[in-house]
């Protein structure tokens, strides 16, 4: 089953966008829940985005240096 990993929304007033800095997993990699998938930066800090599920990373949908908003799909996992 394909599962879309999105950049989680943090709520009102919170950070709502970030820049993709570094993928920490490659297409084809098997990841566990909470493994870091990708690193983002905001004005404030660098953040790693943990995998919400265990599965295989089948497709990255954003590239390094892309600006993304909360809710955007970052990658697809096969779970």
């Amino acid at each position: 089953m394909r599962y879309e990993v999105t950049l989680p929304e943090l709520g009102d007033d919170s950070v709502d966008r970030a820049t993709v800095t570094l993928w920490l997993a490659d297409e084809g990699d098997i990841v566990s829940e909470n493994d870091d998938l990708v690193e983002m930066t905001t004005d404030k800090a660098a953040f790693s985005v943990p995998s919400p599920k265990a599965g295989t990373l089948v497709e990255k949908l954003v590239d390094e240096d892309d600006e993304v908003s909360v809710g955007d799909v970052l990658c697809i996992l096969e779970i």
Binding site: T21, T41, A45, A46, F47, S48, V49, P50
Partner: peptide, 19 residues
């Protein structure tokens, strides 16, 4: 943007069921 922060300025993006 890469390298804007030293390696110790790194956190986890809020997510998951407890969040």
């Amino acid at each position: 943007m890469a390298g804007q922060f030293p390696e110790w300025i790194r956190r986890t993006w809020g997510s998951g069921s407890d969040f």
